[in-house]
Amino acid sequence: MSRRPDNLTCDRKAVNLTRISRRFAELRANGELGIVAYITAGDPSLDATQRFVLALGEAGADVIELGVPFSDPIADGPTIQRASERALRSGTTLASVLDLVKKIRASREVPLVIFSYFNPILQMGLERFADTAAAAGADGVLATDLTPEESAEYRQIVSARGLDTIFLAAPTSTDERLRKIVDCSSGFLYLISRTGVTGAKEALPEDLPALIRRARRVTQLPIAVGFGISLPGHVSILGGLADAAVVGSALVNEIERAKSPEAAAAALGERVRALKEAARHGMSRREVAP
C-alpha cells in the first residue's frame, strides 16, 4: 500500500481505503500507467452499460467512471453531449445509475466512480446520495461543477461513507488552487490536460508535462490526466509523467458508431486493450516511485 502523505494535511479524519487507492497502489508498485475509462451510463441503455463495464474491466480498465447524464452538460463537448441525450431518452436517472453500480458490484471488483454534474446529486439529497452510492458499492464521486470552495458539506457527507472525493484540476488552476484542490481530494487527482470541453484530440498540449510537474509538486496522490486522450501514443507519452490516463470521448464514440451493444462492447474492449498494451510497454514504463 502506498503512503498517502497528502492526508496529513487534509481536514478529513479517516483515510479512505477504497478499491481506487488499492488499485493505484498496485499500479505504482508495478510501475504501470493506469487506464481510467469513462462512459455515459444509460447510453444507449443501462443494460448495455452493464455489458460495457464488464467488457472494459476484462480488457484491463483500472478504474471505470460512470457518467450520469445531465440536460445541460456545460463541460462536455459534442460527443458526450449526444451520449447524455441518448441516456436521458432511455430514462436514465442518478438513482438508476446507482442501481446499476449495485448490479455490477455483485460480480465485479473493478473500481467505480460516479461522475455527475452537481444538480442531480443535490436533488437526490447529499445524504441519501452518499448512503445509496456507498451501499451500492461505488468507490468515489466526482462532481464536475463542484469546486473545493462549495464542497465542505458534500465532502464531509461523502467521505464519511468511505467514498473517495475526486476533484478536477485545470491548466488555469494556480499553485494556490492546486493545493486547495488536492487537500480536498482522495483516491486520485483528475488533471484536465487542456482548457476546453471533453473530446478526443489528435495531439496532447505542449505544456502538459509542465502542468503535471506542477501538480506533482503539491501532491503524492495518483494523478490521472484526462480530456483529449484517445490514442495509445498519448498513453505512451503520459507513461513517464502521470499515474493514469482517462479515456472518455474516444470510448463514447465507439458506442455511438457501433451497430449493436454487442459490437460496441467488443470495440470498447479492443480500444482499452490497445491502451493497456501501450501502458504496459515501451515509453510508458514508469520508474517505480522511490
Partner: peptide, 27 residues
C-alpha cells in the same frame, strides 16, 4: 433535502443562494 446546502460557504451569497458552481477551469 436541498435546504441542507446552506449559506455562508463563500462570497457571492444572497442568503443561501448564489455561489460559484463551475468546472475548475473557470475558477
Amino acid at each position: 433535502s436541498t435546504r441542507t446546502q446552506t449559506a455562508g460557504t463563500g462570497t457571492g451569497r444572497f442568503g443561501p443562494y448564489g455561489g460559484r458552481y463551475v468546472p475548475e477551469t473557470l475558477m
